[in-house]
Structure formats: C-alpha cells, structure tokens
Design a protein around this nucleic acid. Structure first.
Length: 570
RNA sequence: GAGCCGGUAGCUCAGUCGGUAGAGCAACGGCCUUUUAAGCCGUGGGUCCCGGGUUCGAUCCCCGGCCGGCUCACCA
C-alpha cells in the first residue's frame, strides 16, 4: 500500500469522515447518460476537417492529433501520416467515429482545401445536455488540477465521463478537501449538472461530491494500461479497471450467453442443472478431476460433460433441454485449453443431426447479429463469413481429398494407417489405438485449413460411442462438428437411443481403455437402463462458449476470455 | 513433461561488455478557473524474482529453484 494514501485515510478519520460510506444514490450509469447526448455515428461516414494541430502524440499504430478549427472547437484525428508538427494547420479526410465516446476522425489522411466546420459535424451527433442534473459514481481515473479548478474523469463499466470542480461553486473548504484527499483510483460520487466544455466534451459541473471508497494502491499507468499478462490474470480486477478491451471482451461474453439463453428459451427449451460431481465421468473422452466424498467414502469425478444426464431427461419426458455450465478436464493448459471451460449442451427430441445443422446456423446468426451486429468477422487477420448455409463436407471425403486414401483404407488397413501416421510424423504413432490414429491423422491433415465455418459430417463410429449409427452406412455415425478457424466450435449427433447398441459401444470403449486409451469412456449402467425405457429419436449438440467468444473478440488465448483463468499459486 | 524466452520503481520500459541503476506516467511540494496523455518548477522512490557459486566486487557470468510467456508433447 502506498504511504501517502494511508496518511490520507488517517486524515479522513481525524475529520470524522468515513472513507467507506454505506450508499450513494446514482441517477444512472455513466454510459447511459452519455448515450442520451451522443448519437451513434453511421459506419463509414467520411468527413473532411481543417484546423491547427494543438498536439500530436504517438499511439500504438500511428498518431493522434488534437485538431482545433477557427471557432476553437476540437476534434481528435487518428492518422498514420508521418512528420506532423504541433502548431501547423492541416486538412484531414477520414472516417467519423467514436473513440472512447469522443467524436474522432479515424484512418485520416492528409488532404487539401477547406474542411467542414468541426462545430457543425459535432452538432449532428452530440446534443446539448441543457444543464441536466445528474448523480453519478465511478472510479476516478484521471485528475488535472488547475489551481482553482479541477478536471478529472470517473469511470464505470459503461463508460467514463469528465467531471469539473470549481472552487467558486463547491466552496473553498470542499475544494481544499478534494485536493487534499482524493487520489486516482478512488471511487467517487458526484452530483451536478451536465454541460459541454469548449472542446465539446460532455462534463459534469460538480456541485457536491463524496468519497465512496478509498483506493490504497496506485493504479496501472493511464496510457499503456496493464500489460503484464501474469498480473492481468491474477488480478483481473486491475485488468478490468485499466484495459477497456478487457471490459469489452467480458461484456460481450455475457451478452452472448444472455442471447444464447433467450434463443433457446424462445424455442421451448427448458434450462436444467445436472450434477457436476458424478460417480462416473462419462459423455466425452477426457481425463477427469477426482475428488473424495468423506461421508459416502467414495471417489467422485468433476464432470467432463453433462451429456448422459441431459439424455436421461429426454427419457424422462423433457423434449427440449439445455444446460450452460462448466466442464472440467484434467489435461494440459495451452492457448485453447483451460482445465475448466464453459459449454452449452442442448437436446431436442424428434430431431436428427440434419435438423441441428440448420438450427446451429440459425443460432449462430442470431448470436452474431445480437452481439456484434454482423455476419462477417475478422479473426487473426482473416475474414470469416458466417452467412449460411455453411459448407458441409463428409469426414472421409475430406480425408480422401487430403490423403488420397478412402474410408476402406482408414477403417480396414491398420498397418497402412500406421505407416501414414509415421509419414505425417504423428507423435507416438506406434502406440495409438486404431480410433486414435484416425483421429490424429484427421486433425493433422484436415482440420488445419478449415477456416470458414464448415460442418464436417458423418464421423467413423469408432470415434463416437454415443452417436447413432448412420442410416446409410454402418461404419459411420450421424455426427457433425462445426469447425471455424480450425477450432472445433460445436459437436453434435443424432443420439444413439438403442440400448443394446449403446451397451456394445461402451464395451468397445472399455476395450480401447485396456489398449491404453486413458480417455476412453466408462460404462454407465444406469444410462443404458434409461435407454431401455425408451428415448425418443433425439439430436443433441454441445457448443464451446469460450472458443466462440475467442472468435468474436479476435483473441487467440482462451485465458483472455475467462475472467479468472487457472494460475499456479504465487 | 521438454525446448526457447522473460521477471529491473506502483505501471510501461531502458540499462549496466561485472564497479549495487535510469526515463515517462503515478507519488510528494509549489504555480495555474474550460483542461483532457494538460503544462511549468522542484523532490522522493528499488531485496534489479529467490537461493547458492565464481569474483576484490554479481542486478549482470555459472548452477539450482519459483513464477510467467511461446513452441512442442498431452488434450477433439
């Protein structure tokens, strides 16, 4: 903790001021207030402005110029033009846009001639608050004291707004108190009326203020934010305070999950909760976390998937169910894997996997429209187009295209397959089971260049112990995976509802396990019994939420979309 | 688990071919009533990740450890 801040805390207590008061009445969130006076700028609106560069500063990818015209109205200009000098007069052409709420010209290029009046441009999108009274609270994130006046910004999740404190308005004593006590990072409540400064920024002229919580540590640097990835993950609150991108990502994640719920709810799905602690970890191929129940004196497993429970509910007469929740897999951690991750699984009675493909397209289109408002996204420098229908390609067609070998080869010629794996330099190729070999070869040759949304359909039965045998080919199952940017985003199938077949598949999994596949599934007798009571024809799907959020936020690290990713203790 | 890279002020970073360290922001003191990466003058601030070794001397070189990142392995 910082000594000077602790001293301020002492001073407050001496004055009888509680640095941690109980409540403060806000009239609205900051972003809502701003949006009432700041209209959305249509995308791609070109403007031309001319004025004097009051300041030129370097940004991560170019320069930011504060441009002031003859009427002394300012606008921010973001440009890549080199060699700009303070005090010179320039004309810029660029796209009008809001940066941190402020009207700005982005992608600006030097130009000739007169521009439009900056005041008029601003008047089209920024309206006069007409002295509206507000009561706002937030974290103090900037502070500029100017003798008898103070400017600063307070910030909440929805945005930031400038505050203006004048000695002749709040009185000598209060003004002195503010100067003496407040630090960057404190939570502050202010009451006052809205106006616009000369440069046009919406600002609260403060009539009264209150300390709502003292911050005892200095905040990360205002310009560079918090970069240290370790601190960003360990102290996510600091990341959220300092980095607007991070706030945006997690807000988007929340909105995506809300919209997902809404989409499913509106279509008659019932949201349910099934056990996280399970006596048998099944429903996927993965190593589970093991825990111990003292009272029952038995091991329990953290679920690797909710699948078998959700299908029991289909048997129980719930025709459409879904669950959004964490799965846990006791495996490596890397850019695309976290030991706990979020999935939605949903099941629909009377549908097959073809119905689900269309449904998945609808669902994804819905989410994209609601969350980012468009169907084309940029991911890792590539444009990805989610306009349906998505490409559909059969598993073995894709393999044949890439390797020249057909289904018969992959399913019947184990030795040939092993040689192929060797040629592809697949690690441990000599130890892998037949099923694993197919899977690995597929991943190596096929998944790598699936960038645009693609349904890979009709998987080999060996790889899919819970999927229904394909109606046209007993070697296959009716299953698809949706691959986007090489990530497996969704996995779905027509559910296996024949109890005899299911039992046989579990037995096959046990044989795989004996052959050294630690991730092969366990037998779940009660699940088979449930099927014996009759499960209607059903289709089911799982979608990885984390990876979907990664795609929509153009991040390549799963830890950037999980609020508190797993870290070793310090 | 393996290889490579990193850990320096609260934050972002620089630096020392081995002689115990700097900048900007933040902090502290002063000036400034429309500033906005405010500005101007001045001041303080460090277990250079931890432990050991080599050395007259280690933040720097060597060894070990901790934490993190990337790649690979594992993991649909």
């Amino acid at each position: 903790m910082e000594e000077s801040r602790l001293k301020k805390l002492e001073k407050l207590r001496e004055k009888g001021v509680n640095p941690y008061p109980y409540r403060f009445e806000i009239s609205d969130f900051i972003g809502n207030v701003r949006s009432r006076f700041e209209r959305e700028v249509p995308e791609g609106l070109k403007v031309k402005v001319r004025g004097k560069a009051k300041r030129v500063s370097r940004t991560e990818e170019g320069f930011m110029v504060r441009l002031s015209d003859e009427e002394n109205v300012e606008i921010l200009v973001f440009t890549r033009e080199e060699g700009l000098r303070q005090g010179e007069t320039y004309t810029f052409e660029g796209v009008l846009s809001r940066v941190e709420g402020k009207l700005s010209v982005v992608d600006a290029k030097l130009s000739e001639g007169d521009g439009e009046s900056i005041r008029k441009i601003k008047a089209r999108f920024d309206s006069d608050p007409e002295g509206e009274e507000v009561s706002l609270a937030g974290r103090l994130v900037s502070l500029r004291t100017m003798g008898k006046a103070i400017f600063g910004h307070i910030q909440d999740l929805t945005g930031r707004i400038q505050i203006y404190i004048r000695k002749d308005i709040v009185g000598d004593e209060n003004f002195y108190f503010f100067n003496e006590i407040f630090d960057l990072g404190d939570i502050v409540g202010v009451k006052g009326k809205l106006f616009r400064t000369q440069t046009g920024e919406l600002t609260v002229e403060v009539h009264s203020f209150e300390l709502l919580s003292k911050c005892l540590h200095p905040l990360p640097e205002k310009w560079h934010g918090l970069k240290d990835v370790e601190v960003r993950y360990r102290q996510r609150y600091l990341d959220l305070i300092a980095n607007p991108d991070s706030r945006r990502t997690f807000l988007l994640r929340s909105r995506l999950i809300s919209e997902l719920r809404r989409f499913l709810d509106e279509r008659g799905f019932v949201e349910v909760e099934t056990p996280v602690l399970q006596p048998i970890a099944s429903g996927a191929n993965a190593k589970p976390f093991i825990t111990y129940h003292n009272y029952l004196e038995m091991n329990l497993y953290l679920r690797i998937a909710p699948e078998l429970y959700l299908k029991r509910l289909i048997v129980g007469g719930f025709p459409r169910v879904y669950e959004i929740g964490k799965n846990f897999r006791n495996e490596g951690v890397d850019r695309t894997h976290n030991p706990e991750f979020t999935m939605v699984e949903f099941y629909v009675a009377y549908w097959d996997y073809r119905d689900l493909m269309e449904f998945t397209e609808e669902l994804i289109v819905h989410l994209l429209k609601k969350v980012i408002g468009k169907l084309k996204i940029n991911y890792g420098g590539k444009e990805i187009d989610f306009t349906p229908p998505f490409r559909r390609v059969k598993y073995f067609d894709l393999l044949k295209e890439k390797t020249g070998k057909d289904k018969e080869f992959f399913l019947r010629d184990l030795e040939g397959l092993r040689n192929l794996a060797k040629e592809l330099e697949i690690p441990n190729y000599e130890k892998l089971t037949h099923a694993k070999l197919i899977d690995k070869v597929f991943e190596r040759v096929a998944e790598e260049d699936l960038i645009q949304p693609t349904f890979v359909i009709d998987f080999p039965k060996l790889l899919s112990p819970l999927a229904k045998t394909h109606r046209e080919d007993p070697d296959l199952v009716e299953r698809f995976e949706l691959i986007v940017a090489t990530y497996e985003v969704a996995n779905a199938y027509t559910e296996l509802n024949d109890p005899m077949d299911q039992r046989e598949r579990f037995l096959q999994q046990l044989r795989e396990r004996e052959m050294g596949d630690e991730e092969a599934m366990e037998m779940d007798e009660d699940f088979v019994r449930a099927l014996e009571y009759g499960m209607p024809p059903t289709a089911g799907e799982g979608i990885g939420i984390d990876r979907l959020v990664m795609l929509l936020t153009d991040t390549d690290t799963i830890r950037d979309v999980i609020l508190f990713p797993h870290m070793r203790p310090q």
